[in-house]
Nucleic acid binder design. Structure first.
Ligand SMILES: [Zn+2]
Length: 318
DNA sequence: CGACTTTGACCAGCGC
DNA sequence: GCGCTGGTCAAAGTCG
């Protein structure tokens, strides 16, 4: 299969924001206030509230159109993602059935990761699930044990093996493994034992700022903090698709959507998982962010729409 | 006081 | 059997 067939998320909306006034980015008080409340135009030509409202309406229309386009693109992206994921799972299932290893347990499988593909995002990442045999104890039922691997880039400084992925985890162990000087942390889902998901988090050998989280199993419950906020979105419903966006509001609002592809070949150890971060994409992202941050209405709507998902991510320090 | 983290002990697979 | 290693348990500690 060709792993390089990932979705090109370059957004070519040709919505060039008109008259970009470089105001200070969105701060708290500019949410409800129309941003041209300056007394200057009151003196010159007395621009007749009709014109003003006309301009505002025009801008509102533009913003609405932009919102609509974004929504459509988001929907398409989610659909594509689901389709791809299904295809991938089919593929993996077939492969897994074909080469179903008979013996009980291979322990050295951690270093020889076979054909699993990984999607690494900046700040938060989820990878597609792969099939790997997991027969822990002979008496334990191995109905479906899907393991997935996620590369999460963190700051190199902090040594906490915490991956904020939206779920709540309880740490139950930590070991120093042989082939990696950094310890490995073991987590269980807080909904255990009703939810059997476990995850292991360990720093990458090559890049200490990359956390490698290995998930085992699937959650049988929604995100713990999915509340009614997701319902009040203005047509922006993300569904249950693991979209990722980190919204750090420390004085200014930035929306960072960094989709980077980690590795494409089955040669696992050769390339770092976080290498290619295309500047073009980043520029697009920044442009989107800047255009979004200049529209308080849109920002408020977006914040209301995605706050349900952001709740899991920005409560610590992202 | 409950939930979570820490950490040493314990257990099971594997190679010799 | 023995030692090594990865994974888990559980008592004690910590935190809100
Ligand atoms: Zn769970």
């Amino acid at each position: 299969m060709d792993n390089s067939s990932w979705v090109d998320t370059s957004l070519d909306l040709n919505i060039n924001p008109p008259r970009v006034k470089s105001d200070a980015p969105v701060d708290a008080e500019s949410f409800g206030v129309p941003r041209k409340m300056k007394p200057t135009f009151m003196f010159q030509t007395k621009p007749s509230a009709k014109e003003e409202t006309g301009a505002i309406e025009e801008e509102l229309n533009r913003v609405s159109e932009e919102n609509r386009k974004l929504t459509e693109m988001l929907t398409v992206m989610c659909e594509n993602y689901n389709a791809l994921r299904n295809q991938l799972m089919d593929c993996m299932c077939k492969n897994g059935e074909k080469e179903l290893h008979g013996p009980t347990k291979k322990r050295k499988s951690a270093s020889s990761n076979n054909n699993d593909n990984n999607i690494a995002m900046n700040g938060n990442s989820e990878s597609s699930s792969t099939d790997e045999e997991l027969s822990k104890k002979p008496r334990e039922e191995v109905i479906k044990a899907k393991t997935s691997r996620a590369y999460v880039r963190t700051e190199a400084g902090d040594k906490s093996l915490i991956v904020k992925d939206g779920y709540q985890w309880r740490k139950y162990g930590q070991k120093v493994t042989r082939d990696n000087p950094s310890p490995r942390a073991y987590f269980k889902c807080s909904f255990a034992p009703s939810c059997p998901v476990k995850k292991k988090v360990q720093r990458s050998i090559e890049d200490q700022s990359v956390l490698v989280a290995t998930y085992e199993g699937e959650h049988n419950h929604p995100h713990p903090s999915m509340e009614a906020t997701s319902g009040s979105s203005h047509g922006l419903t993300l569904g249950s698709v693991p979209c990722s966006a980190s919204l750090a509001s420390s004085g200014k609002t930035n929306i960072a959507l960094d989709l980077t592809k980690s590795k494409s070949s089955n040669d696992a150890k050769s390339s770092k998982p976080k290498t290619d971060a295309p500047e073009v994409r980043q520029f697009l992202v920044e442009q989107m962010a800047s255009s979004l941050t200049k529209d308080p209405n849109f920002t408020a709507a977006l914040a209301a729409a995605i706050s349900g998902r952001m709740l899991q991510q920005n409560d610590t320090k992202w």
